[in-house]
Amino acid sequence: MSNDTIHIALGVDNNYFPYAGILITSILLNSPENNIIFHIALNEILSDDNRKKCSKFNNIYKNAQIKIYDLSEQIDKLPNLSIYTDKRFNKSILLRLLLPKMLDTAIKKIIYIDADMLCINNIETLWNMDIAANIIGACPYKEKNGQEQIKRLGLKNNQYFNSGMMIMNLRAWQEKNITEIIVECYSKFYEFFLLPDQDAINIVLQGNIQKLSFKFNRMLAANNRLLAAYERDDILLHFVNEAKPWLDGNTAAIDELYKKYMHQSLWNDIKFIEPDTAELMILAGENYEQKKDYKKAAHYYKKAAKQLFTENLQDNND
């Protein structure tokens, strides 16, 4: 077993805590020889069910521990998200800006990961990355999307980075008061930010971010066969936008992969969520058709048709 304890941070609300639990389980199953401490920040008081699961987790795993940080008071002091921000987000996404300041100064570095990710290989490969000359290491957006964000924010460097996975040089972060600087940037310009925490991080840390391989943050869509591919040596899969792995009707491969880790976790009782837009319903129908489950495919095609009819009727009335 490695003597070097790996520190991993997450920021969630109570609704996302079970998904964080499944992610944590996938990390442990792929890194059995490592000691790992998971630092989980919340923007609200931990619910009874999540607290019980957390306590059970800490009793079961001898090489891992979950530590909880209630940052609701600090989050409440920050401005609400911009009206331009995607409605899927809430202020819990700002937890990644605040948590580094709360951590013990003896911790030299930490990996931050979003809860909508899954680990499929040993996390130690990421932990051993040397980013000493920079404040964080992260994966950039691909060319077209990246250039759009660079132009929107007026960035001087030619990279726009995803904040869903960051390895942080915690000592440099704390010494340079990065939390305070980024929070000030967010508080000043939040009304113009589409991706609040991510925009602020890219503005403040431009020139101090080490570019990492996409295998550490492979962005994909769980429900779209054209956008669900990943490489065998990838470490972390990141399910972006609305296509989450706990949504019903994903591709057969992603569904099988996610359920493999879910069933081995303490959070094996989660309920999969039904798609709520016509686009998601159509993709679910296509995936069930591929699985030869024609009854479920027809269910989602019918729901999609009904929703599209309702939306078009409303548009005509307007």
Rank of each mutant, 00 (worst) to 15 (best):
N50G: 14
D86N: 15
K53P: 12
N202M: 02
L247W: 00
K144Y: 05
K108Y: 06
P79T: 00
D318V: 10
I150T: 06
A304Y: 01
D104I: 02
Y261D: 05
L29Y: 07
I131K: 14
L212F: 05
K292Q: 08
M165N: 08
W127K: 05
Q290F: 06
S55I: 14
K292G: 02
K292I: 00
T85E: 15
G249Q: 03
P245D: 07
E286R: 11
H238K: 03
N241G: 05
K260V: 08
L103T: 02
N169P: 05
H39G: 09
N58K: 04
G207H: 11
L99P: 03
I107H: 03
P32R: 12
E73F: 08
E180F: 00
R51L: 15
L42G: 06
R152K: 13
I123C: 03
Q206K: 06
G11F: 03
G249Y: 00
I136N: 07
M281I: 01
S92L: 09
E124C: 08
Q210H: 11
I209Y: 07
D199Y: 00
A222D: 04
K176F: 02
V183W: 01
I113G: 02
R96H: 07
M281W: 00
E274Q: 15
N250R: 04
F214K: 12
E242T: 11
K271T: 09
N224A: 10
M168Y: 08
L95R: 06
T310Y: 13
N208K: 12
E311R: 12
L205V: 02
N157C: 11
G285Y: 03
P100W: 01
N59S: 12
N122R: 08
I123H: 04
D86L: 08
I37F: 09
C185N: 14
D13M: 06
K215Q: 09
K259W: 00
G164A: 09
A228S: 15
L29S: 10
N14G: 11
W127I: 08
L153P: 09
G249M: 05
H263K: 15
E289S: 10
N34P: 02
I27K: 08
Q264R: 08
L97F: 08
L71D: 05
G137D: 04
A243V: 01
I181L: 14
M166Q: 09
G137A: 04
C119R: 06
L126T: 00
D116R: 06
C119K: 08
L257M: 08
N3M: 11
P79Q: 03
K296P: 04
D315Y: 10
V204D: 02
N50W: 03
L126N: 01
I8R: 10
N223L: 01
